[in-house]
Write a protein that binds this DNA or RNA. Structure first.
Length: 466
DNA sequence: TCCACTCACACTTTTGAATAGG
DNA sequence: ACCTATTCAAAAGTGTGAGTGG
């Protein structure tokens, strides 16, 4: 299995850790954590065309879903894994004549939520012994969502960020080391219905749940003739031949997607012709070129460097408190996936590495606040008092009493399989009246929801209630 | 008229309870 | 009594395409 690798050096962000955290922390600062993305080829295939992820009111899983491998963790130390989605840029897009076009400014960002891997916290040995799947992460366009799904805007571009936090429990996070990883090929456009038929076909070809749509004639038959007998026979026949579509190694190539018709050889050719296809299929490459020209940034072609080499992810900005960059401010999509494409492979990658939470809202760090607005810190960086407890978290794992025993809003019940932190702003998205008083009391979010520029100004967490 | 969005639908895989067998 | 394997039904996850509303 081929992996894309992100590696960053550990850096401390201690602002006064409790003795327990300190004790373990020092020892853990010495290694390097490495994260690799599983199924990078699949991700690239989608990315080359312009990945789209369906978002629905009840929530929709991602496909491909985020799956990573970790190494370099301290086996006995506990870690928490998180994922959140950050906008690629400050635009809204539309699908026009087989390509994506900018359709205006982005809408005000929805409540920022973070998906907590349900195994969290778990020892490093647990995370390293097998790949870590975020299969159950769901995306929604329902800003009033009460299931803890990650809320996105349709026709906007995002990419997932993976955070590793060394912490014994969720409440040690404040004192813990954060590391953030991103993979350029995981960026996607949130949509309510697929726009690019090539993406649809790729999804159908690779997602087992969409198997029923693989046969070109199936859908029509299914619709026109509700008697499934014939189709069943066909399926059973193929199964008897031991050639289930899923098992077929050439499944990928069965796609009716014009660029991928053919056999394995075609797949190989495709890889060799990555650059050409990037230009041909990726709407973003086109956008990037366009915007690059505008911005004078280097061409998107260098994206390939990132794909073909180990990704070196520099220390997240949280380790350089209040380091400001243009994340989310860039007027160009080239600041995104393509940002990786701007400039040299590494530096561009650095520039796009999102900031993560600054686990301390210490107003004594500040100078920074008065400079350019931080993607992590609000423009008006609130004092501690300004965070009356905006932590909105649900933890399904009732087996983690240590977690549930704290001052946490968990409206989704024990059956909720996801753990979520969200710094939603009830001022803008008022919680339904059935919400606990606890929540309504806490969730007074001071952040402005003005525009995407401000998106990354959200801290990953709100710590005031920790 | 266009386009983003919602919903019911048919189909699939996944999950978990019930049952059988060792 | 316990464990494992199998079976089966319900639940959940898919894209489709018609319909809706701005």
């Amino acid at each position: 299995m081929q992996h894309l690798i992100c590696r960053i050096d550990l850096k401390a962000n201690f602002s006064g850790p409790p003795p327990s955290a300190m004790a373990s922390g020092d020892a853990y600062l010495q290694g390097n954590i490495r994260m690799t993305l599983e199924d990078p080829d699949l991700w690239r295939t989608f990315h080359e065309i312009g990945t789209e992820m369906i978002i629905t009111k009840p929530g929709r899983r991602m496909f491909p879903h985020c799956k990573v491998n970790l190494s370099g963790l301290i086996p006995c130390a506990k870690y928490i894994l998180l994922v959140d989605m950050v906008p690629e840029d400050s635009f809204r897009y539309k699908w026009n004549k087989e390509k994506w076009e900018v359709a205006g400014k982005a809408e005000p960002q929805p409540p920022c939520r973070t998906y907590l891997h349900p195994d969290s916290p778990a020892p490093g040995s647990h995370w390293m012994k097998q790949s870590i799947s975020f299969l159950k992460l769901k995306l929604t366009n329902n800003t009033l969502d009460q299931h803890g799904h990650i809320i996105l805007h349709s026709m906007h571009r995002y990419h997932p960020r993976f955070h590793i936090v060394q912490a014994d429990d969720l409440f040690s996070v404040r004192w813990s080391v954060f590391q953030t990883f991103t993979f350029p090929e995981t960026s996607f456009t949130a949509v309510t219905a697929y726009q690019n038929t090539k993406i649809t076909k790729l999804k159908i070809d690779h997602n087992p749940f969409a198997k029923g749509f693989r046969d070109e004639g199936t859908t029509k038959k299914r619709r026109a003739n509700k008697n499934p007998g014939e189709l069943d026979k066909k399926v059973k026949l193929s199964e008897m031949n031991g050639k289930s579509e899923e098992d077929s190694p050439s499944d990928f190539c069965r796609s009716s997607f014009e660029g991928y018709e053919g056999d394995e050889a075609e797949l190989q050719k495709r890889k060799e012709a990555d650059e050409i296809k990037e230009k041909r299929y990726s709407p973003w490459s086109a956008e990037r070129r366009e915007h690059s020209a505008r911005n004078g940034s280097p061409p998107a072609a260098e994206t390939r460097d990132i794909y073909n080499t180990e990704q070196l992810v520099p220390a997240p900005a949280s380790y350089q408190p209040y380091r400001f960059h243009d994340y989310g401010k860039s007027p160009s999509p080239s600041s995104s996936v393509g940002s990786s494409a701007s400039g040299s492979g590494r530096s561009s990658f650095e520039s796009r590495v999102p900031d993560v939470a600054v686990p301390d809202h210490d107003s004594s760090k500040p100078g920074t606040q008065e400079g350019a607005p931080s993607p992590c810190a609000p423009q008006h960086f609130p004092s501690t008092q300004d965070y009356p407890g905006v932590l909105n978290m649900t933890v399904a794992q009732a087996s983690k009493p240590g977690v549930l025993g704290h001052h946490i809003y968990g409206p989704y019940g024990a059956e909720q399989p996801l753990g979520q932190w969200s710094g939603s702003g009830p001022a803008q998205y008022p919680p339904p009246h059935h919400l606990t008083a606890d929540y309504t009391a806490q969730a007074v979010h001071p952040y402005p929801h003005g525009n995407v520029t401000e998106w990354s100004q959200y801290p990953l967490f709100s710590y005031s209630c920790w």
